[in-house]
Design a protein around this nucleic acid. Structure first.
Lengths: 204, 204, 204, 204
DNA sequence: GATGAATGAGCATTCATTCAT
DNA sequence: CATGAATGAATGCTCATTCAT
């Protein structure tokens, strides 16, 4: 009478359905504006079930956020660390960022459209840890290339803005409208821009 | 015989108080998370008064937003159009942006921390018009300098991200923590980065 | 400098405008559902003015009601007392009722569509007195004709319902829809019905 | 294994309690003047529960109305159609009407004291359908007896007013005061009145 | 008399969360 | 684990009324 051998139980499917339902709701109406009942309808689950699996709206939102950012960051770091030199690293991560956005449109909207302070609640710790490691790895990479002279020496705070600010800004706009970007060419131009700003070949 | 010379009526003061109270609340807890009652407490006004003057929470939020963005954009365009050449224009607007953020910390948090789609409601039209003119003026400036060869020719969509993405990203971070930036030097570095990305002197 | 010789001052006009504005609002949305502000808009007056002249919403509603019912009752009693015999009295008041409804459509809706208990508040006394006299006069008329044998002897409570119930019911329906009745013929049929019910010629 | 044979679930009881609580409130203070909180107190339920089951105040009011009118109309039609001739039909429905009022005093006040246009909102359709069938059945009955010559031929619009106007008017008065009528005798007199007005035996 | 800003209690409704089944 | 009825605090908003000008 027991369920034998369902490797991925219904439980897992249910959880996934809720997470995706929540994501859909969050991006189409905002986190605060999404009610538990909205999520239940979208994911064909019951209030009780949702609470059984996630405990609270806040924890569910955090779960959604972490799920996405983890995937994003893992690929990002991989792209960076797989690079053979500074220039290819910069081109790599910009291309990666754009591709990730195109491949995960819902997550992209959720992660990059708004700030998420205040919604992480108890899970803020987990997020901070994640971000700490992420920033750390990026910094290590940067400092290595600054030390070797391939990247210009700047105030530590500006590396990430200069590297990612333009793509982020571009994506934020792309994500607000519904319009698909011509990734290939845009990636090239944005990456080149970052490289021109960060690389150390003398100019001025 | 009445009301001679009350330059700023109580009505105006009341409205300003409400707008500023709302701004304070919005940035410290978020728009959705701010209740009308919060705003009333903060601005020492009554529910009725708030509604008498603004009609709804949505319209109030829109008013707050428009008030801020109008001031920001006016100065921005001025800085751009006052520039004598492309390089000084770029350095000018970056410096302007950072200075505006430091001078109007609350507005900066409100305007630059989150997207505001969905909170403009009926006022979206007014905002679109405002943004339209703003983007237009910037485009005109850019195309002029591209035509004259001082700026590189790129896809139209990437100019603004490359110009402002880094400062925005920097500011977003600065605004999340509470830490005052070393504006002077940071402005210089961010402006130079933008110039290196956009200027047409051959490098690569 | 004083207003000389305005027989009907602006004050009177203002009061009339408010009463009629209120009546319009009351019949189109209901008393409770009509706000003071609605009435002000409809009558081009200010809140303050309305309160200056009428003191409260309740008193205004009462004034509107009394104004109407007084006019109605005066004509009714006149029609009754001017009659030469029972039959002509009955035909007279039924015709009067229908004509009054057609001539004062707004008042008719207001007076005959709903009960007005609870809205008279302090003015209930005035209304009771008015109704008392009205019912009294009708009763006197009835009893006279019962005594003289032209009208059947019935329980006192049923005379008015039998006399007016049908027209009231007819009017209530006519007033709910917007459809003009063929007064002439309908009046004849309804009056005859009342006469058949009340008159004493033997039948059954 | 669960819930065997709970004929009337708690849910049903809860709904009934709310409907009756609402009815009580509506007749004692009016629909608009009754607050949701009043109904909750009267019915020992919570706001949330009320909204869970009825969706809105308007829908609840409609439900209360429909519940009552359905019961009233069903019995009315039955009394009419069970009659063997015109006269017994008329006497039957008048008696039925009065008896129903006495047996369901709260419903009677609610149904017959005020017009309910405007409070049905979305449910107006359901009501119109109900009323349509009701009026239809009555008309069929009337036309049958007119055709066979037992009832006088009149304009279609006046049959119902003449038949029911007097009782309605009588009941409306009875319902405004709290005084119990001497049903038996009154029913007789009102029914006779209707019969005298409608029946075709020559008189005048 | 006229005006309309100000007040704050009150209202319908929503919603995260709990819990019995 | 799943369900959905129940809860009640909280929210945005309305409105009769007051009062300074």
């Amino acid at each position: 009478m027991k369920k034998l051998n369902t490797t991925h139980s219904n439980t897992d499917n249910r959880k996934k359905a809720i997470i995706h339902g929540a994501l859909e709701c969050f991006i189409s109406t905002g986190i605060s504006e999404t009610s538990i009942s909205d999520i239940c309808k979208k994911s064909n689950s019951s209030t009780g079930s949702l609470y059984h699996h996630f405990g609270s709206k806040e924890k569910l939102a955090a779960k959604v956020y972490l799920e996405g950012i983890q995937d994003y960051q893992k690929g990002f770091v991989h792209a960076l660390e797989a690079s053979t030199d500074a220039k290819s690293g910069i081109f790599g991560v910009i291309a990666y960022h754009l591709k990730w956005v195109v491949d995960h449109p819902a997550w992209a909207i959720f992660l990059f459209r708004e700030r998420h302070s205040g919604f992480m609640g108890q899970s803020e710790h987990e997020l901070h840890q994640l971000n700490g490691e992420f920033v750390n790895k990026i910094s290590v990479w940067f400092f290595g290339h600054v030390a070797s002279g391939t990247l210009r020496k700047l105030k530590p705070d500006v590396y990430q803005p200069i590297l990612l600010g333009p793509v982020q800004e571009y994506v934020r706009h792309y994500v607000s409208c519904a319009h698909k970007p011509d990734i290939k060419n845009v990636a090239e131009e944005l990456a080149l821009a970052a490289w021109l700003s960060l690389g150390s070949e003398q100019k001025e």
